[in-house]
Each structure stands twice: as C-alpha cells, then as structure tokens.
Design a protein around this nucleic acid. Sequence first.
DNA 1: TTACAAGCGTGACCAAGGTCACGGGCGCCC
DNA 2: GGGCGCCCGTGACCTTGGTCACGCTTGTAA
Lengths: 239, 239
Amino acid sequence: MPPTRRACSVPTHLTTTTVDFLGTVPLFSGLSPDELSSFAELTRERSYPRGSVILFENDPGDSLFIVRSGRVKVVLIGEDGREVILGVLGVGQHFGELALIDEQPRSAHVIAMEDSSLIVLRREDFRKRVESSPAVAWSLLAELSRRLRRADDKIGGLVLLDVPGRIARLLLDLSEESGSDQIEKSLTHQTIAQMIGASRETVSRAMKEFQDAGWINVDRRRISVGSRQSLEQRAQVRE
Amino acid sequence: MPPTRRACSVPTHLTTTTVDFLGTVPLFSGLSPDELSSFAELTRERSYPRGSVILFENDPGDSLFIVRSGRVKVVLIGEDGREVILGVLGVGQHFGELALIDEQPRSAHVIAMEDSSLIVLRREDFRKRVESSPAVAWSLLAELSRRLRRADDKIGGLVLLDVPGRIARLLLDLSEESGSDQIEKSLTHQTIAQMIGASRETVSRAMKEFQDAGWINVDRRRISVGSRQSLEQRAQVRE
DNA sequence: TTACAAGCGTGACCAAGGTCACGGGCGCCC
DNA sequence: GGGCGCCCGTGACCTTGGTCACGCTTGTAA
C-alpha cells in the first residue's frame, strides 16, 4: 500500500495551508482563526521517511508533534528487541504532550510507519497557549482522558482475555474508529501481534478461525467485520 | 492493620477543616485561600465502609472524588469474577475525573479497601473551576500525564516481563512511592497478584525466591527492599 | 519474466504459569 | 481455649501460547 504522498507539499514552510490544517485538528477546535494563525507562526514542519525514529524513549524532549500526513507508531522496545505497540497515530493526531506537561523524559519511542510529515511546536510556545486558552486545555484533557481509558482497557484485556479475545476486541475498536465495518488501514499479522502482546503465529491461527467462522472477511490484507456480535461475544471473558 | 479512623470526623459538614484539607491536595496546590474556600463550599463529604463499592463501571457518573481518609482501589472485574487492580489511591488522591471531563460512563469500579471518607464535587461546579483557573487545569493535566505514563508502563510490563519481573517492578515502584526501602502498606499476595495480573500461587513462589535470594525482607506482611539493584535487574527483559 | 522480499499457514515442541487440592500458621471473636 | 476465617506454602497437573522451522503466496523491482 503506497504511502500517502501528495504531489504538492515538500518541506517548504507554507504558512497558509498550515493554518488551514491546524483548523482541522481536534486539539485546536474551538480556536478562532486569529488564534490559529498566531499558533501557526510558532510552528515548524519536518518530514520523516518511513521507519525513521522520531523520538527516543528517555530523551528529554520538549516538543509537541502533530501528524500532518502519514502514520506513526508509539512503541516500547524490550532489550531483547521485542516491540510493543502502544498506539498508532494518524493525520490530525498529536503526541509528545506528556513530556511537555510534566517535564519528564519521553516514555516511549515514536517511529514513522510511512513517510510522514509532522508539525512541531516547542514547549514554551505551547504552554503559554494552553494556559491562556481554556478551550485548548480542555481538549487536551479530553484527549488524555480518552487515552487513559484506552490504556486501562488494554490492561484489562491483557489480563482477562486470551489472544483471540484480544484480537476480537482490537478489531471491534478499529472498525468503530473507522466508522464502518471496513477497517481502513491494512495491518500485517505482525503488527496486530505487537498491538495485543502476542506472537505472529498465534495471530495467524486466530485470524484464520475468525475467517472460517465467517466473523470477518479478509481481502488482500483488508479486514472487514462480518458478525460484530460474534466478535463482541468472543471479546468477553469466558470461564 | 487497623483502618485509619479519626475520632473527630463524622458526616457533619465541617467547612473549616475541609478547606485546610483541600489545601494539602496536590490537585489544588496553587490556589489562593479564597479560591480554596469557595471551592470547599461546593463540597460534600461521604463515608464508605470497607468493601463498599463507591462507583460502578458504566455508571453515568458526574462527580469527582477526593480521598480524605482511608484507601480505595480502582478495579476491572471480568464476568468470571476475576479482579484486576488498576490502581490504589490514598489520602489526597482523586478519581472520577475522566467521566467528568469527557462525559463518558465510568471506566472501572472503585471499591473502598478500608473505611474511607471521601470529598465529593459535582461536575458543573468542578468544570467551572477548571475553566476559570489555569492552575487547576494544569495540575489535572499533570496528574493525567502521570497516570498515562504508569498505564503505558504497565502495558509494557505485562507484555515484556514474566511474573517475577513484574513483581520486582511493582516492589520498586512501591518503595519509590514511599520514599524508603520500606513499603508502607501491607499487601497480601492476593492483592499483589491482582495488581500484576498473575495468580496468588505464582506470586507466593516468586516472593519466596526473592526472600531466599535476600533481595527483599518480609516481616509480618511488611515488605522492605534489600537489594534494589538485583530487583532492577530482574525487572528488565531477559532472553 | 524471473527474482527477491515480505508476509502468511502450519506442524512439532516446550515452558511459564494457571488451576486444584491440601495442610499449616496466625489472629480474632465468642 | 476452641473454632473460624484469612493468608500463605507447595505439589501435581494441564493448557495456552511462545518458539522454531519450514514452505507457500503475493507483491514489487530489475
């Protein structure tokens, strides 16, 4: 699947379109055009080729990033090299707020999954904005809340569900996110495995069962949900 | 271990002491005495006996709670009855913000581990404060960040570490929290098991090994860390 | 077209850890 | 003091799922 590369945009700093783009970012919904453009001025744009590391765990880090194009993953890496994917962020989503709020070092690596272009904001600039604009503070709270819920969910899933259950839950989440039975992004079994804490092989076997049961359909690496209900049931704790 | 029950406080509404107490809560650090007392007026206080459920997962929920005395646990419960402890909150800590920020239903149960007394704030009252006081918004952001980091850590631990590793990490966290090698609260193996997603028996065996190795000392259910370094090493991924 | 790299399917094997079943210690309340 | 309720220690099993080792498919590049 080809990386979403637009003919137009190369690193040159195109202030006008940046403003427009920022207007579409949920974090900044509720800002007036004026506020938006004053924001946009503080902004830099950087591109990262697929596979490049955007930030490292334990770096001090003092910037906020917003995905302008492409897709990035947030991962933990064990010393043996195994990866755990904490999240996948697409266009309009942001990361790096934590280090920026509490001044702790970065808590995970972030890696570009496709060629990606990111908007960068420095701590002090961002901080001032947040403090002076309750709307931004509130969206930020809302976003962190959402992530915290997801994280807690994930913990619950890891402890209470077996691997097929976790896959079922993941698929339901993804389809909900895309708003249809189709899951937008094509995912490899390897990636799924890293998202739910399992091995590639086990995912393969479970996915096959789901297909055979008719709960999902897979066509050229694109998954769609057949029977939401069966999946939901499978995603429940059983005894 | 006896529940911390003070001779003084029964449900009567003692505004003065409430203000003093709120002043010690991290969430409200940075508020002027005036602001504090106007806050205190919006407040109710309730007591919960040990074991009682303070709030249920999926309840709509529109209040914020602050622990005034006692201790509560945040838990997920599978339909087979297994419990996962997401966190344990002590005096001065708060819960219930999420439902209050994003208006989603509660994401977990909260249960009193000891007889506890809680301060309750209603959504609208709290919301107004947050919006008008950047300091509170900022502490809230900081607290959510902290929790998010911990949650992500926990996810990493669940996927990358074996049971002894997770215990080691937990012990290190707890001792850090208490600021000494002694771990304040006495924990049963059962509780530890639920905190790290393991069975009581496995915890028993692992703890015994740690003792035999001299990494920890246990005296009448009170744990203290002997060799921090060995624990740290055990809490790393190994191959 | 061939060639090569990713990704997938599957079988065989193994081990971490869950489950069950006890027995024993310790504190508490009658 | 006797009984009861918790907690902990430990052995015997068994299941889930990780690991290894292949070989097959498919998509992409020369």
